[in-house]
């Protein structure tokens, strides 16, 4: 089973995603440069965090025109599991695979700290190994993670159970003081209608070893392994 880690100019969590997949999860990982035009037979695609194109213009706005994005979109539309983390989330909203957008944090500052998120939905390829309501302690590191979508879009996301992660306190309660950036309805991560494209602002790949503070994020990657199974067929829910 192989994970493709897409590398845009300015990606900087690409090495972290690669390290975690290969050396902690024990799966295959391969960097795919953004100028490539195919995914080299990958079973899972990760759009990593970072500052693609320096975050210039808008976060993710230039990266979404990279040559590799056409095969990524095709892969997603064919039902392939795609995980966007932080800048990867921003790229996925810019390219239209996920609704809404990410605004400046309400503190108007970059924030790097451990937060808690609650797993809201289990029938996605990146949460199927978690338990209902499981609370994960994983870090954020972003200046623009304040999720925004018009009310009717938010309502639709809720109705379709597309909100996959929400910010919560250590006890799993959804309180505004646990929302680090002002995201609408405490949304930390969501999925597309088909449920195969999942993205979140916090960094699960940074929280996969207790030596670096938390191993709670590993369940996100383990889910992908469980979802694909030994035959590489995607099954969730």
């Amino acid at each position: 089973m192989k994970f493709a880690v897409i590398v845009f100019p300015g990606s900087n969590c690409d090495h972290d995603a690669y390290h975690t997949v290969k050396h902690v999860l024990g799966a295959d990982a391969e960097f795919v440069w953004h100028k490539e035009t195919d995914l080299k037979g990958a079973d899972v695609v990760i759009l990593p965090g970072g500052f693609s194109y320096g975050d210039y213009l808008r976060t993710g706005a230039i990266a979404r025109f990279s040559p590799i994005m056409a095969p990524v979109v095709a892969f997603a539309e064919a039902g392939g599991p795609v995980l966007g983390v932080c800048n990867g989330f921003q790229v996925l909203t810019e390219v239209g695979l996920l609704p809404g957008g990410l605004l400046r944090n309400r503190s108007v500052k970059f924030q790097c700290e451990q937060v808690h998120v609650r797993v809201e939905e289990l029938d996605t390829p990146f949460t199927c190994a978690a338990t209902a309501g499981q609370v994960l302690r994983i870090p954020i590191a972003h200046g623009e993670g304040n999720y925004f979508a018009p009310p009717e879009v938010l309502d639709a996301l809720e109705a379709n159970r597309q909100v996959v992660f929400r910010y919560c306190n250590a006890g799993g309660e959804l309180v505004d003081t646990a929302n680090p950036n002002g995201s609408a309805r405490g949304i930390a991560g969501l999925c597309n209608a088909r449920r195969n494209v999942v993205a979140l602002m916090p960094h699960p790949e940074r929280a996969c070893e207790s030596a670096v503070g938390s191993a709670d994020g590993l369940v996100v990657l383990e889910s992908a392994v469980a979802a694909l199974g030994s035959d590489g067929m995607l099954r969730t829910g």
Partner: peptide, 16 residues
């Protein structure tokens, strides 16, 4: 101050 610095990227930071 340090909350504005990414102190974890590269997944090597042991002491926060």
């Amino acid at each position: 101050i340090y909350r504005q610095y990414d102190h974890m990227v590269r997944t090597n930071t042991i002491s926060p």
